[in-house]
Amino acid sequence: MTEIPEHLRKRAEEARAKAAAAKAEPEAPAADAAPSEAESKIPAHLLERAKAARSKAAGAEAGAGESVTAAPAGGTAVATAAPPVAAGPGGHTQRLLTVVKSGSIQDVKAAPQDKVHVWPHLLSIEFVAALLCIGFVLIFSIFVNAPLLELADINKTPNPSKAPWYFLGLQEMLSMFHPMVAGVLLPGIGMGGLMLAPYIDKNPSNKPEDRKFAISLFTIFMMSCAVLTIIGSFFRGPGQLFVFPWAAGLFFEL
Protein backbone atom coordinates (compact mmCIF):
# COMPACT_ATOMS: atom_id res chain seq x y z
CA MET A 1 0.00 0.00 0.00
CA THR A 2 1.22 3.47 -0.80
CA GLU A 3 1.92 5.57 2.15
CA ILE A 4 1.62 9.33 2.27
CA PRO A 5 4.57 10.93 4.02
CA GLU A 6 3.65 12.65 7.21
CA HIS A 7 4.77 16.15 6.19
CA LEU A 8 2.77 15.95 2.95
CA ARG A 9 -0.26 14.73 4.85
CA LYS A 10 0.02 17.61 7.26
CA ARG A 11 0.40 20.08 4.41
CA ALA A 12 -2.68 18.65 2.71
CA GLU A 13 -4.63 18.92 5.92
CA GLU A 14 -3.65 22.55 6.30
CA ALA A 15 -4.62 23.28 2.73
CA ARG A 16 -7.94 21.56 3.25
CA ALA A 17 -8.59 23.60 6.37
CA LYS A 18 -7.74 26.77 4.49
CA ALA A 19 -10.05 25.82 1.63
CA ALA A 20 -12.86 25.14 4.06
CA ALA A 21 -12.33 28.55 5.61
CA ALA A 22 -12.38 30.21 2.19
CA LYS A 23 -15.58 28.43 1.25
CA ALA A 24 -17.24 29.81 4.34
CA GLU A 25 -16.80 33.32 2.90
CA PRO A 26 -19.64 34.37 0.60
CA GLU A 27 -17.79 35.19 -2.62
CA ALA A 28 -15.49 32.26 -3.33
CA PRO A 29 -13.68 32.12 -6.67
CA ALA A 30 -15.51 29.40 -8.55
CA ALA A 31 -12.94 27.20 -10.20
CA ASP A 32 -15.20 24.29 -10.91
CA ALA A 33 -17.47 26.15 -13.28
CA ALA A 34 -19.17 24.01 -15.85
CA PRO A 35 -18.77 25.07 -19.52
CA SER A 36 -22.40 26.10 -19.79
CA GLU A 37 -22.24 28.59 -16.97
CA ALA A 38 -18.64 29.56 -17.76
CA GLU A 39 -19.77 32.61 -19.79
CA SER A 40 -21.22 34.30 -16.78
CA LYS A 41 -18.28 33.55 -14.50
CA ILE A 42 -15.42 34.67 -16.75
CA PRO A 43 -14.29 38.14 -15.74
CA ALA A 44 -15.37 40.87 -18.12
CA HIS A 45 -11.90 42.04 -19.15
CA LEU A 46 -10.89 38.50 -20.13
CA LEU A 47 -14.01 38.11 -22.24
CA GLU A 48 -13.25 41.37 -23.98
CA ARG A 49 -9.69 40.33 -24.64
CA ALA A 50 -10.78 36.98 -26.06
CA LYS A 51 -13.26 38.68 -28.33
CA ALA A 52 -10.62 41.07 -29.60
CA ALA A 53 -8.20 38.22 -30.26
CA ARG A 54 -10.82 36.27 -32.15
CA SER A 55 -11.68 39.22 -34.42
CA LYS A 56 -8.01 39.92 -34.96
CA ALA A 57 -7.34 36.33 -35.96
CA ALA A 58 -10.27 36.47 -38.36
CA GLY A 59 -8.85 39.64 -39.84
CA ALA A 60 -5.44 38.05 -40.22
CA GLU A 61 -6.93 35.07 -42.00
CA ALA A 62 -8.77 37.42 -44.35
CA GLY A 63 -5.51 39.23 -45.05
CA ALA A 64 -4.17 35.82 -46.13
CA GLY A 65 -0.58 35.20 -45.14
CA GLU A 66 0.85 38.47 -43.99
CA SER A 67 2.72 36.27 -41.56
CA VAL A 68 3.35 32.69 -42.63
CA THR A 69 4.13 31.35 -39.20
CA ALA A 70 0.97 32.71 -37.59
CA ALA A 71 -0.39 30.34 -34.99
CA PRO A 72 -4.05 29.36 -35.34
CA ALA A 73 -4.91 30.68 -31.92
CA GLY A 74 -3.60 34.05 -32.91
CA GLY A 75 -1.63 34.42 -29.71
CA THR A 76 1.74 34.81 -31.45
CA ALA A 77 0.19 36.74 -34.27
CA VAL A 78 -0.94 39.48 -31.96
CA ALA A 79 2.47 39.64 -30.42
CA THR A 80 3.79 41.19 -33.60
CA ALA A 81 1.10 43.87 -33.58
CA ALA A 82 2.09 47.14 -31.96
CA PRO A 83 -0.24 47.34 -28.93
CA PRO A 84 -0.92 43.81 -27.62
CA VAL A 85 -4.56 44.12 -26.86
CA ALA A 86 -4.94 40.55 -25.73
CA ALA A 87 -1.95 40.45 -23.39
CA GLY A 88 -2.74 39.44 -19.84
CA PRO A 89 -0.77 40.43 -16.77
CA GLY A 90 2.96 40.07 -17.49
CA GLY A 91 2.37 39.84 -21.21
CA HIS A 92 1.16 36.24 -21.13
CA THR A 93 -1.96 34.80 -22.57
CA GLN A 94 -3.37 32.24 -20.19
CA ARG A 95 -6.19 29.86 -20.49
CA LEU A 96 -7.67 27.56 -17.87
CA LEU A 97 -8.22 24.18 -19.51
CA THR A 98 -9.86 22.21 -16.76
CA VAL A 99 -9.74 21.49 -13.09
CA VAL A 100 -9.42 17.82 -12.26
CA LYS A 101 -10.25 16.77 -8.78
CA SER A 102 -7.79 14.32 -7.24
CA GLY A 103 -9.23 10.85 -7.24
CA SER A 104 -11.06 11.14 -10.55
CA ILE A 105 -8.03 10.07 -12.63
CA GLN A 106 -5.52 8.85 -10.08
CA ASP A 107 -6.58 5.84 -8.08
CA VAL A 108 -5.82 7.01 -4.59
CA LYS A 109 -6.09 3.83 -2.60
CA ALA A 110 -4.50 4.75 0.66
CA ALA A 111 -6.32 6.85 3.12
CA PRO A 112 -3.63 8.54 5.17
CA GLN A 113 -2.69 6.22 8.02
CA ASP A 114 -1.24 6.96 11.37
CA LYS A 115 2.17 5.29 11.27
CA VAL A 116 5.25 5.21 13.43
CA HIS A 117 8.86 4.40 12.67
CA VAL A 118 9.81 0.79 13.34
CA TRP A 119 13.06 2.08 14.79
CA PRO A 120 12.85 2.90 17.64
CA HIS A 121 9.19 2.21 18.42
CA LEU A 122 8.86 -1.45 17.41
CA LEU A 123 12.45 -2.68 17.58
CA SER A 124 12.87 -1.55 21.18
CA ILE A 125 9.73 -3.47 22.19
CA GLU A 126 10.91 -6.57 20.35
CA PHE A 127 14.30 -6.28 21.97
CA VAL A 128 12.81 -6.13 25.46
CA ALA A 129 10.46 -9.04 24.68
CA ALA A 130 13.36 -11.17 23.42
CA LEU A 131 15.42 -10.25 26.46
CA LEU A 132 12.62 -11.20 28.87
CA CYS A 133 12.08 -14.44 26.97
CA ILE A 134 15.71 -15.53 27.04
CA GLY A 135 15.97 -14.41 30.66
CA PHE A 136 13.01 -16.54 31.62
CA VAL A 137 14.33 -19.60 29.75
CA LEU A 138 17.79 -19.17 31.25
CA ILE A 139 16.65 -18.78 34.85
CA PHE A 140 14.07 -21.56 34.53
CA SER A 141 16.79 -23.82 33.07
CA ILE A 142 19.13 -23.09 35.95
CA PHE A 143 16.58 -24.27 38.50
CA VAL A 144 14.61 -26.96 36.66
CA ASN A 145 16.39 -29.82 34.94
CA ALA A 146 15.10 -31.54 31.83
CA PRO A 147 14.09 -35.12 32.61
CA LEU A 148 16.46 -37.95 31.73
CA LEU A 149 15.06 -41.27 32.87
CA GLU A 150 16.91 -44.59 32.69
CA LEU A 151 18.07 -46.01 29.37
CA ALA A 152 15.33 -47.00 26.94
CA ASP A 153 14.22 -50.61 27.30
CA ILE A 154 11.71 -52.01 24.86
CA ASN A 155 10.92 -54.89 27.24
CA LYS A 156 9.98 -52.70 30.18
CA THR A 157 6.76 -50.78 29.59
CA PRO A 158 6.25 -47.99 32.12
CA ASN A 159 2.79 -47.66 33.59
CA PRO A 160 1.30 -45.35 32.50
CA SER A 161 2.91 -44.70 29.09
CA LYS A 162 2.14 -41.21 27.95
CA ALA A 163 2.76 -39.31 24.73
CA PRO A 164 4.33 -35.81 24.79
CA TRP A 165 2.00 -33.31 26.43
CA TYR A 166 0.72 -31.77 23.18
CA PHE A 167 -0.57 -35.19 22.08
CA LEU A 168 -2.15 -36.03 25.44
CA GLY A 169 -5.48 -34.59 24.31
CA LEU A 170 -5.45 -37.12 21.47
CA GLN A 171 -4.42 -39.89 23.82
CA GLU A 172 -7.27 -38.90 26.11
CA MET A 173 -9.71 -39.19 23.21
CA LEU A 174 -8.33 -42.66 22.51
CA SER A 175 -9.86 -43.81 25.78
CA MET A 176 -13.25 -42.52 24.66
CA PHE A 177 -13.52 -43.40 20.99
CA HIS A 178 -12.38 -45.97 18.51
CA PRO A 179 -8.70 -45.34 17.60
CA MET A 180 -9.67 -44.51 14.02
CA VAL A 181 -11.99 -41.77 15.25
CA ALA A 182 -9.80 -40.42 18.04
CA GLY A 183 -6.41 -40.74 16.37
CA VAL A 184 -7.18 -39.87 12.75
CA LEU A 185 -10.69 -38.61 12.10
CA LEU A 186 -11.08 -35.99 14.84
CA PRO A 187 -7.56 -34.49 14.58
CA GLY A 188 -7.92 -34.55 10.79
CA ILE A 189 -11.20 -32.68 10.97
CA GLY A 190 -9.68 -30.29 13.50
CA MET A 191 -6.63 -29.45 11.40
CA GLY A 192 -8.58 -29.38 8.12
CA GLY A 193 -11.20 -27.15 9.69
CA LEU A 194 -8.52 -24.77 10.95
CA MET A 195 -6.86 -24.61 7.54
CA LEU A 196 -10.14 -23.98 5.77
CA ALA A 197 -11.40 -21.48 8.35
CA PRO A 198 -10.74 -18.39 6.19
CA TYR A 199 -12.58 -19.95 3.26
CA ILE A 200 -15.54 -21.12 5.34
CA ASP A 201 -15.93 -17.93 7.35
CA LYS A 202 -17.24 -15.44 4.79
CA ASN A 203 -18.08 -12.77 7.34
CA PRO A 204 -15.93 -9.78 6.33
CA SER A 205 -16.01 -8.05 9.72
CA ASN A 206 -13.24 -8.44 12.25
CA LYS A 207 -15.19 -6.83 15.05
CA PRO A 208 -15.81 -9.27 17.92
CA GLU A 209 -19.47 -8.23 18.21
CA ASP A 210 -20.10 -9.21 14.57
CA ARG A 211 -18.57 -12.66 14.79
CA LYS A 212 -20.03 -14.22 17.89
CA PHE A 213 -20.53 -17.59 16.23
CA ALA A 214 -16.95 -17.91 14.94
CA ILE A 215 -15.51 -16.82 18.26
CA SER A 216 -17.75 -19.20 20.22
CA LEU A 217 -16.84 -22.11 17.98
CA PHE A 218 -13.13 -21.41 18.21
CA THR A 219 -13.29 -20.92 21.96
CA ILE A 220 -15.08 -24.27 22.32
CA PHE A 221 -12.34 -25.85 20.19
CA MET A 222 -9.54 -24.31 22.26
CA MET A 223 -11.22 -25.14 25.54
CA SER A 224 -11.79 -28.78 24.58
CA CYS A 225 -8.14 -29.06 23.55
CA ALA A 226 -7.07 -27.57 26.86
CA VAL A 227 -9.43 -29.66 29.00
CA LEU A 228 -8.54 -32.92 27.23
CA THR A 229 -4.82 -32.15 27.50
CA ILE A 230 -5.09 -31.30 31.20
CA ILE A 231 -7.09 -34.46 31.94
CA GLY A 232 -4.65 -36.55 29.92
CA SER A 233 -1.68 -34.94 31.64
CA PHE A 234 -2.68 -34.81 35.28
CA PHE A 235 -5.76 -36.97 35.80
CA ARG A 236 -4.62 -40.24 34.25
CA GLY A 237 -2.67 -42.68 36.37
CA PRO A 238 -1.53 -46.29 36.02
CA GLY A 239 -3.56 -48.22 33.46
CA GLN A 240 -4.87 -44.89 32.08
CA LEU A 241 -7.35 -44.88 34.96
CA PHE A 242 -8.80 -41.62 36.20
CA VAL A 243 -6.97 -40.32 39.28
CA PHE A 244 -6.83 -37.08 41.20
CA PRO A 245 -3.30 -35.68 41.14
CA TRP A 246 -3.58 -34.36 44.71
CA ALA A 247 -4.48 -37.83 45.95
CA ALA A 248 -2.52 -40.22 43.73
CA GLY A 249 0.40 -37.96 42.76
CA LEU A 250 1.60 -36.77 39.37
CA PHE A 251 2.09 -39.13 36.44
CA PHE A 252 3.50 -36.56 34.10
CA GLU A 253 6.92 -35.75 32.62
CA LEU A 254 7.65 -32.88 30.29
Binding site: L148, A152, D153, T157, S161, Q171, P179, M180, G183, V184
Partner: peptide, 24 residues
Protein backbone atom coordinates in the same frame (compact mmCIF):
# COMPACT_ATOMS: atom_id res chain seq x y z
CA UNK B 1 11.44 -36.10 21.96
CA UNK B 2 12.95 -39.45 20.96
CA UNK B 3 16.58 -38.37 20.86
CA UNK B 4 17.57 -38.71 24.56
CA UNK B 5 16.70 -42.40 24.17
CA UNK B 6 15.47 -42.85 27.71
CA UNK B 7 12.32 -44.62 28.89
CA UNK B 8 10.29 -41.40 28.63
CA UNK B 9 11.37 -40.84 25.01
CA UNK B 10 10.91 -44.41 23.85
CA UNK B 11 7.44 -44.89 25.27
CA UNK B 12 6.12 -41.44 24.45
CA UNK B 13 7.14 -42.02 20.85
CA UNK B 14 5.70 -45.53 20.91
CA UNK B 15 2.34 -44.17 22.00
CA UNK B 16 2.53 -41.35 19.46
CA UNK B 17 3.47 -43.50 16.49
CA UNK B 18 0.89 -46.13 17.41
CA UNK B 19 -1.72 -43.41 16.91
CA UNK B 20 -0.36 -42.77 13.40
CA UNK B 21 -0.72 -46.48 12.66
CA UNK B 22 -4.50 -46.09 12.83
CA UNK B 23 -4.50 -43.98 9.65
CA UNK B 24 -6.79 -45.77 7.20
Amino acid sequence: YLLPWDQLALWAVTVGTNMMGYTP
